[in-house]
Design a protein around this nucleic acid. Structure first.
Lengths: 245, 245
DNA sequence: AGGATACTTCGCTCAATCCCGAAGTGTGAC
DNA sequence: GTCACACTTCGGGATTGAGCGAAGTATCCT
């Protein structure tokens, strides 16, 4: 390899180990997670993961923040998430080894949670419906630099419209509650390769849907849409019929 | 890790071995290179590289084309180059071990090819000049989802203007020739961290510059700007003076 | 045909590192 | 103070795979 060329091997090697890859993918949405959570996610012993995390930190991909007896790890900068996304776009989805995994793989593509909001075909259809129904307006962000936290708020912005605020109010969604997080943000859906709604509003909507009994959260991030949800989503939010329920 | 998540580990592992990374970086400009060339590039025995290449092909990152007793390898699709660039943006540049490497490192930052178009300070200056000279117009792309091809065509678009078409025509660049690829596309420059022009137009311009004797392609992706190129680029395209020649 | 070249396959060695459990360190809870 | 908990460090076992050269196959040249 040519000197002066960027040396991608060490970085790629960090991402190329299953446990570390699992950690990074778990952190890709910008959350800070504790070591023990990550160990469970990666399916390895705490001691093993500790070594992996040390290497990720050493490699500059992940940073630590100590809080009491916990240590919270997060991805250091958006370029890391970019690279992970670029790899994910390249990666085949993991092979299906059992019928159960097969139905799970299908289910998770249909509707799942991503961090604290909806994703999969349902998540994408929801965002489409909110835009089509003038609840959200798409704006280009002239500042255009990749945004640090929460996945992929790139140079596009979704803004809640006045009518949108009213419509959501009718649905019992109080838009004012949240202050610290950006209200709207999008997140590139790995299975659909299209954006879905993230941010505080994505979170609030998911909670509200659960409260309304429109969706129920299953195992491993899978989400089921109920009959009430099917009709409610179509009637109140105009979510187009599709293979998301 | 949850089944159904994209499994980036195997792909990243393919890129995470120094010899394979060297091969991929050598192929990142889209050329097809023979196995022996790549072995020299990577600095390993032919037999070793053969195994590496087999794995890259098996992993879908690289494709082979047999031609006589040679086998030519190339990167299968632009998404692979995308991922490599995303990793390169993350990677520290490798330490410089010799004067020769030092000058090369400088040269490659100054002007190089990336895939099939110009990059480095020259590539960035060129795109700036095309925009400043109203050859290309920047548009925000409302369709806004990240675009698969050639680097990072995010939600920004470069559109060829009418005057630009005329200007390029005077330069002997036939803009109509290309149909299958998007005409303009940008690619984030890993050394400059700013976009340079990719896409069919980027390719056509590079070819034309070579035909005009404005630039010559050196070894290892380095590009030299000739005296004619210096004056021509400034006069005909308004490329601002800078440390790119 | 005979030899050179390009590449792959095979057999082997050796180093890296992945993994775990046990023990150690520091913090929070009672 | 004492226990529980979160995490790291250490020691040792097992696996992986990167490396080379030699031999094998296919192609090109003369």
């Amino acid at each position: 390899m040519v000197a002066g060329d960027a040396d991608i091997a060490p970085i790629a090697a960090l991402m190329g180990e299953p446990a570390r890859a699992a950690v990074l993918m778990a952190l890709i949405d910008g959350r800070a997670l504790a070591a023990s959570t990550l160990a469970a996610e990666a399916g390895v012993a705490a001691s093993t993961l500790s070594a992996h995390l040390a290497r990720l930190v050493d490699g500059g991909l992940v940073s630590v923040e100590a809080s009491g007896r916990n240590r919270y790890f997060r991805i250091t900068r958006p370029e890391v998430a970019d690279a992970l996304e670029a790899l994910a776009r390249l990666a085949p989805c993991r092979p299906i080894r059992s019928l159960r995994q097969g139905t799970h793989a299908e289910a998770i593509r249909r509707a799942r949670t991503c961090y604290d909001h909806l994703a999969g075909r349902l998540g994408v259809a929801l965002l489409d419906a909110l835009v089509a129904g003038n609840v959200l307006r798409v704006e280009e962000d002239p500042g255009g630099r990749p945004d640090p936290v929460l996945g992929a708020g790139r140079s596009q912005r979704y803004v809640l419209t006045k009518t949108g605020k009213a419509r959501l109010g009718e649905l019992g969604v109080d838009v004012e509650t949240t202050a610290r997080r950006p209200l709207t943000r999008y997140c590139l859906d790995w299975s659909e390769q299209r954006p879905h709604l993230a941010g505080a509003l994505g979170n609030t909507l998911l909670s509200r849907f659960v409260d309304l009994g429109w969706v129920t959260r299953g195992e491993r991030r899978v989400v089921q849409v109920t009959d009430a949800g099917r009709t409610g989503l179509a009637r109140d939010l105009g979510v187009a019929a599709g293979d998301w329920a």
